[in-house]
Design a protein around this nucleic acid. Structure first.
Length: 295
DNA sequence: CCGCGGGCCTGAGAGC
DNA sequence: TGCTCTCAGGCCCGCG
C-alpha cells in the first residue's frame, strides 16, 4: 500500500491514540512478519509510554520512554486500525471489510487511555523492530535513506547531485530511497507526469557536468513536493489496502493523472486527439506515462 | 560501489 | 462455479 502520503496519513491517525499513552498490554499473534519479532518483543514494550510518533521515509517511529524506538513498516499491505472501548458502532461499521480479516491482525497494542491499535497485514511484508534511540543513526534500515522530500533542505541541487552520472532511468532513480525518501510506484509516476519528464530519460540528464541542477531538476522537485502535499491533504490513495486509522478511505486515487490509467486520454494533451496513457515495465514494475507530454 | 532480478506472501480480478 | 494465471502501493539480498 503505502508510500509517504499514506504513511503520513497513518501517523496522523495514530498519534492521538498513542502519543502520551502507555503500552498497557501488547499482543503478538504472529511473530513471522518480514523478520520474526523477538521473543521479548512485547516485554520490551509493555509498561512504557509512547512519547512521540514520527515518520522517516515510509517508516513510522514510535519513541518510547524506555529509550527504545519502535521502527515500523507497512510493507505492501499493512494497515493500522484504532478502536476505542465502547465504540461498537465503529467496529460494526467496518466489519464488512474483507481485506480486514482478523486472521491478519498480527500485533495489537492496548493503550492505557483505552484505545486499541491493531496492525493488520495480509502479505506480511511489513515489519517491526526495536532499536535503542542512541543507535538509531546507525540503524541499517534507516542509515542510507536519502532526504525527506517535504523538508526545506530538499531542493533541485540535492536531487541533481544524487542523480548526476547515473545511467539508470529517472523512474528507477526516484524509486531509489537512497536518492530521495518516501516515493513509490504511484508518486514517481505522478511526479514525472507533472514535471513532463519521461520515466525512460536517464537520471543523469537532470544535472549538468558538475552535478549542478538544470531546469528539469527544478521542475521535478516542484512536482514531487506538490504531488506529495496534495496526496497528504487527500488522506493518501486507497487502491486495495490503505485506510486511515479510523477506517475511512483516502481520496487521492481520484486525482491520478497517469498511474493506473493505461489507455485513458492524457489529461494534459491539447486538442481533440489526446494521446493515451501508456504502460511499460521498468525494473519489474509498471510505469504509466504520456509519450507525448513527457520528454 | 552500483544496478538489476529474484524472492518474500496473500488476495483480487480476469479469462477460460 | 471454480480453476489458473497475472498482478499488486516495498524492500532485502545476492549476483555480475
Amino acid at each position: 500500500m503505502p508510500e509517504l502520503p499514506e504513511v503520513e496519513t497513518v501517523r496522523r491517525g495514530l498519534a492521538p491514540a498513542m502519543e502520551g499513552a502507555r503500552l498497557a498490554k501488547v499482543e503478538v499473534r504472529r511473530r513471522d512478519l518480514r523478520w520474526p519479532l523477538p521473543k521479548n518483543f512485547a516485554q520490551r514494550l509493555e509498561g512504557h509510554t509512547v512519547t512521540g510518533l514520527g515518520r522517516r521515509a515510509k517508516y513510522l517511529l514510535a519513541d518510547l520512554s524506555s529509550g527504545d524506538v519502535l521502527v515500523m513498516h507497512l510493507g505492501m499491505s499493512g494497515s493500522f486500525r484504532v478502536d476505542h472501548d465502547g465504540a461498537k458502532g465503529v467496529l460494526a461499521k467496518y466489519h464488512h471489510e474483507k481485506s480486514k480479516s482478523p486472521a491478519h491482525d498480527h500485533v495489537v497494542f492496548h493503550m492505557s487511555n483505552g484505545a486499541t491499535v491493531t496492525f493488520n497485514d495480509p502479505r506480511r511484508f511489513g515489519s517491526m523492530k526495536l532499536v535503542a534511540r542512541s543507535k538509531l543513526d546507525s540503524e541499517p534500515l534507516l542509515r542510507s535513506i536519502g532526504p525527506e522530500p517535504l523538508g526545506n533542505e530538499f531542493d533541485a541541487r540535492m536531487l541533481a547531485r544524487a542523480c548526476a552520472g547515473k545511467k539508470t532511468s529517472l523512474k528507477a532513480a526516484l524509486s531509489d530511497q537512497r536518492k530521495v525518501a518516501g516515493l513509490g510506484n504511484i508518486y514517481v509516476c505522478e511526479a514525472l507526469f507533472r514535471a513532463r519528464l519521461s520515466p525512460k530519460r536517464l537520471a543523469s540528464t537532470i544535472a549538468g557536468r558538475n552535478g549542478e541542477p538544470n531546469a528539469r531538476a527544478a521542475a521535478l522537485v516542484d512536482a514531487i513536493k506538490a504531488v506529495l502535499h496534495d496526496a497528504i491533504k487527500a488522506g493518501g490513495s486507497s487502491l486495495r489496502d490503505h485506510r486511515r486509522a479510523d477506517g475511512s478511505l483516502g481520496d487521492f486515487q481520484h486525482n491520478f493523472q497517469a498511474y493506473d490509467r493505461e489507455g485513458a486520454p492524457c489529461p494534459a494533451c491539447k486538442g481533440k486527439n489526446k494521446t493515451k496513457i501508456k504502460r511499460i515495465v521498468q525494473t519489474g514494475r509498471s510505469t504509466f506515462y504520456c509519450p507525448s507530454c513527457q520528454k
